[in-house]
Nucleic acid binder design. Structure first.
Length: 633
DNA sequence: GCATTTACTTAGAATCATGTCT
DNA sequence: AGACATGATTCTAAGTAAATGC
């Protein structure tokens, strides 16, 4: 603690100081009080600090403050059901800057003719021009949607004239944008510093709120800037104009007795309400989807953390009841009720394959994706036998975010027979489970166990898989790199189960080749080191000269170091290769009970920051604090 | 009962910052 | 010291599930 204070520039090791322990809300704070310094010592010790040092001290001070503010909310008492807070105060959301018109000399051309666009048409045209390098702008749906909405922003004259997107030339706008990006990249250190400080100021003012007695970080305090809607996959609304949000669109939620945030000058909020049964601080309706967007707290907050903890506790409860539940749905496969059988098969998939529930969606409003309950006949193929296995179901469908789920799974005879039955006399586009939806499924699940829903199975199966895999893949005898590889592999098993994919990084091939080259280089070095060692040994043999023995020892150490480094790189290469198209972060952040990882680190003597970065450690502070070696999920 | 609305979690891509190498 | 790669952070879309409205 003193060390931190010293680094922060608020204390020097030569400074006299006192500290006291302050207990507040079950949390012990250490408070420093610096004693007044004497004049002479001041002069002799003081060295002119450079700008950087001052800045570094400042950020450290801030960090210190944040750490002190970190509350052990998990040791506090909980409110009655449904109440999320008793006091909430904040500054309202931060609005993006107004549109800045393009320089006069920039031109837009229609059909080869120069054309000066009005401000509104220009702004929306620029949104499109900025995206020209993106594949989006070549898609028919995107172009049509953009053009339709763009024309709405035009003056009558503009609209009369501009009737064909193909005849539009946004070239100068596009180049202007590219130039801006370039300039941004080439900013000097000083410019970057100025911008950083300005940003920090905004975060300091708008990025925090007071929730009960705690100062909490807000997750998304910035209003989403206007632009063109970028839906995922084959989204029917891609390219539509996402309009600028004004204070008049925003609902503020805060305490009655708090200082209500001021709307930007000349504006008013849509509404100010005081609803302490919800966690959001502000909300607005998005014009593209008609969905409500919320300003909420950061993941390290009490409200989010408590919910997260609760989620894993429910999943752990499932662990102790899952055998009975499985027996039940296996039994239900034989039910006389078609609905019950469909429910049983759906549950079998959700449990075995960690599929999502699959709510129904409004047709034409979103991309065509499905989950378990919304699977259609066309999404599965039945094989009586395939690759030497019997009763194989071949899945091929687009799930959340249009990520393809492709899997060939052997199932029990009874499940297989049921699927055949469900598919009888149906068209490819018909629902596989026509007598089932997520509401019915969840209602049934909650009758089996309080709090049980379809997604609890995903959480449970993910966490239990991590725990099992860690047990299987790692042991205390492995070296550090191997331990981490085993952790990543356990994590990877979960990511594969949950179908968390990513586009391979752009530079993947290159970086793989680079690493491979490094490995080759190291290998040669190792051969050399081995030869030298051999030589040294030979020379030292039968010779009691301590100098020669010393040389042998030195060569041996060099060889070993080389070997270690080689191994580390090889492990890294393996890890990277296996991870090419798999995203680990989603499962790490949302599905894996952090207590499993914390306990594993303790048992394996692996530093926690090897598996969780700072943000993740903040998010999982509750787990880090409460988890012992013997934790079992 | 259902469709709709609301509130919240989960998701991958894009962007930004930092560390490493030359 | 600049280029580049990598990891961290930001962004906001897209899910789940419960409440509400009719």
């Amino acid at each position: 603690m003193f060390e931190l204070a010293r680094l922060a520039g608020i204390a020097r090791s030569s400074d006299p100081f006192v500290f006291s322990l302050v207990k507040h809300m079950n949390c012990v704070y250490i408070c420093f009080f610096q004693m007044p310094k004497k004049e002479e010592s001041e002069k002799s010790v003081t060295k002119k600090k450079t700008k950087e040092e001052i800045e570094a001290a400042r950020t450290l001070k801030r960090k210190l403050k944040e750490e002190e503010e970190q509350q052990r909310w998990w040791e506090e008492e909980k409110y009655e059901a449904g109440i999320k807070w008793k006091f909430l105060e904040h500054k309202g959301p931060y609005f993006p800057p107004e549109y800045n018109p393009l320089p006069e000399n920039l031109n837009f051309y229609y059909n080869g003719e120069k054309l000066k666009l009005g401000l509104r048409a220009e702004e929306v045209a620029l949104y499109f021009a900025q995206m020209l390098d993106h594949e989006y702008t070549t898609r028919e749906v995107f172009r049509n949607n953009f053009f339709k909405d763009w024309r709405k922003e035009m003056t009558l004259e503009e609209r009369m004239l501009i009737t064909d997107l193909e005849k539009c030339d946004f070239g100068e706008y596009h180049n202007f944008h590219k130039q801006k990006v370039e300039e941004r990249k080439n900013r000097t250190k000083e410019e970057k510093q100025v911008l950083k400080e300005a940003n920090q100021k905004i975060t300091d003012e708008y990025g925090f709120c007071m929730l009960d007695h705690h100062r909490e970080r807000i997750g998304n305090f910035k209003i989403e800037p206007p632009g063109l809607f970028r839906g995922r996959g084959d989204h029917p609304k891609q390219g539509l104009l996402k309009k600028r949000i004004r204070p008049e669109d925003v609902i503020i939620n805060c305490s009655k007795e708090s200082h209500v945030p001021e709307p930007p000058a000349g504006h008013q909020w849509k509404e100010v309400r005081h609803d302490n049964t919800v966690t959001w601080l502000a909300s607005w309706t998005d014009n593209v989807q008609g969905a409500t967007k919320y300003v909420m707290l950061n993941a390290n907050s009490k409200l989010k953390g408590e919910k997260d903890w609760e989620k894993y506790e429910v999943a752990r409860q499932l662990k102790s009841r899952v055998d009975g539940i499985r027996a039940q749905y296996k039994d239900d496969l034989k039910s006389k009720q078609m609905g019950t059988r469909q429910r049983a098969v759906a549950l079998y998939f959700i449990d075995k394959l960690a599929l999502r529930a699959g709510n129904e969606k409004e047709e034409g409003e979103t991309a065509d994706t499905v989950g378990c309950c919304s699977l259609r006949v066309e999404h599965i193929m039945l094989h009586d036998s395939l690759d030497g296995e019997k009763c194989v179901v071949e899945f091929d469908f687009l799930g959340k975010d249009c990520i393809r789920y492709y899997n060939k799974v052997p199932v029990t005879k009874r499940v297989f027979k049921n699927l055949k039955l469900f598919m009888e006399n149906k068209q490819p586009g018909d629902d596989l489970f026509d007598r089932l939806n997520t509401g019915m499924l969840n209602k049934h699940l909650s009758s089996l166990m309080p709090g049980l829903t379809a997604k609890v199975f995903r959480t449970y199966n993910a966490s239990i898989t991590l725990q099992q895999q860690l047990k299987e893949l790692s042991n205390a005898l492995l070296n550090q790199a191997e331990k981490l590889l085993s952790y990543n592999r356990a994590n990877r098993a979960v990511a594969i189960l949950c179908n968390h994919q990513r586009a391979p990084p752009k530079s993947f091939e290159q970086s793989m080749a680079n690493l491979q080259a490094k490995i080759e280089g190291r290998k040669e070095q190792l051969t050399l080191a081995k030869a030298e060692l051999k030589k040294a040994k030979k020379e030292a043999k039968g010779n009691s000269d301590t100098k020669l023995q010393f040389v042998v020892e030195k060569k041996k150490k060099a060889m070993q170091r080389c070997e270690e480094q080689l191994l580390k790189m090889e492990v890294q290469a393996t890890d990277r290769e296996e991870n090419k198209e798999i995203a680990l972060s989603t499962s790490k952040l949302n599905y894996l009970d952090p207590r499993i990882s914390v306990a594993w680190c303790k048992n394996m003597e692996v530093q926690l920051d090897k598996i969780y970065n700072k943000t993740q450690r903040d998010k999982f502070a509750w787990a880090i604090h409460m988890t012992e070696k013997d934790f079992e999920f």
